[in-house]
């Protein structure tokens, strides 16, 4: 564990707490993509099934349980308690265009030919594009609540911090995980456009608005 990864994980944790706070404070899931949240549940369940078969550390196990349970809880909030505030008509990204290619990539690129390993690869590829329905929705509506942009920024920072973590691990431990690194770089790149608007507008005290 190095500081890049630790702060990356903390940023991921913070992003989920910000998301739960947003839903609680505004009593609404407006501006959130149900499809992205459902993809995160898929990602976490597919990857962290190994919580039953592998033990890395107490930290690792607790985080896995937290990510699975909090993502499921968010889905419940969106489809249960706050359903009336969810607007599926603007959440129109076609997720099958993500699921199919990711499944295919996992069948081609994996470290071992076993069910859990192919599922692990699938989750890595899917995580890299899971934010697309949310970003697509943002693009469509052209604006976002400030708190929602903080959520996205924390989520993007988590992925960005994993990149120096991999460089550090390559240098200090001589290990490299080409599947995670490739997908991680793609995932971080998807946030660049968002980060530009976040830094130039939201952090200057303005509302998140995209040019018409």
């Amino acid at each position: 564990m190095n500081l890049f990864r630790f702060f990356g994980d903390m940023s991921h944790l913070a992003s989920i707490l910000i998301l739960l706070y947003k839903i609680h404070a505004t009593r609404s899931v407006r501006g959130l993509s149900f499809k992205t949240q459902a993809l995160y549940v898929t990602v976490f369940v597919a990857r962290y099934l190994d919580v039953f078969t592998e033990f890395v550390s107490v930290y690792n196990t607790l985080m896995k349980i937290f990510f699975i349970s909090s993502s499921c809880f968010v889905l419940y909030l969106m489809k249960g308690r706050y359903r009336p505030t969810n607007d599926p008509s603007i959440d129109t990204f076609r997720v099958e265009y993500l699921l199919g290619p990711c499944a295919l990539l996992a069948l081609i690129f994996h470290y071992r030919w076993s069910f859990l390993e192919v599922l692990w690869s699938f989750s890595i590829f899917l995580e890299s594009v899971a934010i697309l329905p949310q970003l697509f929705m943002l693009q469509r509506t052209g604006e976002a609540e400030t708190i929602t942009t903080h959520y996205l920024a924390a989520l993007g920072a988590y992925r960005a911090l994993y990149i120096p973590n991999w460089i550090y691990r390559y240098w200090s431990e001589d290990v490299i995980d080409p599947i995670a690194v490739t997908a991680g770089i793609v995932q971080t790149a998807l946030y660049l456009d968002f980060f530009y608007v976040y830094f130039t507008k939201v952090l200057q005290g303005q509302k998140f608005e995209l040019p018409a």
Partner: peptide, 10 residues
């Protein structure tokens, strides 16, 4: 170079 399966990250 460690190409071993290494799933200690989240």
């Amino acid at each position: 170079l460690g190409w071993d399966v290494w799933h200690d990250e989240l």
